[in-house]
Design a protein around this nucleic acid. Structure first.
Length: 235
DNA sequence: GCGACAG
DNA sequence: ATCTTGTCGC
């Protein structure tokens, strides 16, 4: 990250403190904005070695800088954080486990992206502050969450089978995201705004990145590279 | 108390 | 997330 050093990402002592941090930061989320003019984005995904692998367990992250205009990968950066430093995986608190390695990978890109596409939830989260929102607020960047399974929210209606169809996800106080059928016959993606983007803007942006596979292409690339990086390290 | 539970 | 080959279905 060229412009400025990212603020340190605090590691909570437990879920109690983690939840308090989420509740304290969620009010900073801005659910407005549109991303149609974004050209350079960073897609983030992580891979984790099983315990008892060659190297110590770790979170291996990949940040893929994607050129939306050219429709191709410009740059790939990876980074890992030792298991000993990681917060455990607890549903609802994913950001405290994976954000540190994501931030490290992002810091190795030659430039700051215009927005972040994150594997996980935005506001479709029990406390409206999933990992996409957390990273977006932390770095003051627009962000969108793309999850593979549902964590929070109820589909407003039955999702049509056709590729590209979407239905809203409803939380307690209103819509929190979308179920998006990225391809015909596949399990839907969970799309939700992270930060500085509207509900509709998040959906349209993800739609613009869909290719021939279930996941939007930048995230699929990040997934592949995170896995390769992990195996290269002996995981 | 019971069920749910991103990666 | 990870352990894993071939196989069924669009």
């Amino acid at each position: 990250m060229k412009p400025l050093e990212p603020a340190p990402f605090p590691r909570p002592a437990g879920v109690r403190e983690a939840a308090a941090i989420q509740r304290a930061l969620r009010d900073r989320v801005i659910l407005e904005g549109e991303l149609s003019v974004v050209r350079y984005l960073a897609a983030l995904d992580a891979s984790h070695p099983t315990r008892f692998s060659k190297v110590q367990g770790a979170s291996v992250a990949a940040a893929v800088l994607w050129d939306r205009q050219e429709g191709r990968v410009l740059e790939v950066a990876t980074a890992s954080v030792p298991e000993a430093e990681l917060f455990p995986y607890i549903p609802g608190f994913l950001s405290f486990r994976e954000a540190p390695s994501y931030l490290a990978a992002l810091g190795r890109l030659s430039r700051r992206p215009e927005m972040l596409l994150v594997d996980g939830m935005g506001i479709a989260h029990p406390r409206a502050f999933g990992i996409a929102s957390h990273l977006g607020v932390h770095l003051d960047l627009p962000s969108v969450g793309v999850g593979k399974t549902l964590l929070y929210g109820r589909p407003e209606a039955e999702l049509p089978r056709a590729a590209g169809s979407a239905v809203r996800l409803l939380g307690r106080e209103g819509p929190v995201g979308w179920l998006l059928r990225s391809r015909e016959g596949v399990q839907p993606l969970v799309v939700s705004p992270g930060h500085r983007v509207s509900l509709e803007g998040a959906l349209e942006f993800v739609r613009s990145l869909l290719g021939k596979t279930r996941l939007p292409e930048p995230l699929r690339q990040a997934h592949v590279h995170a896995g390769e990086a992990r195996r290269t390290l002996g995981g």
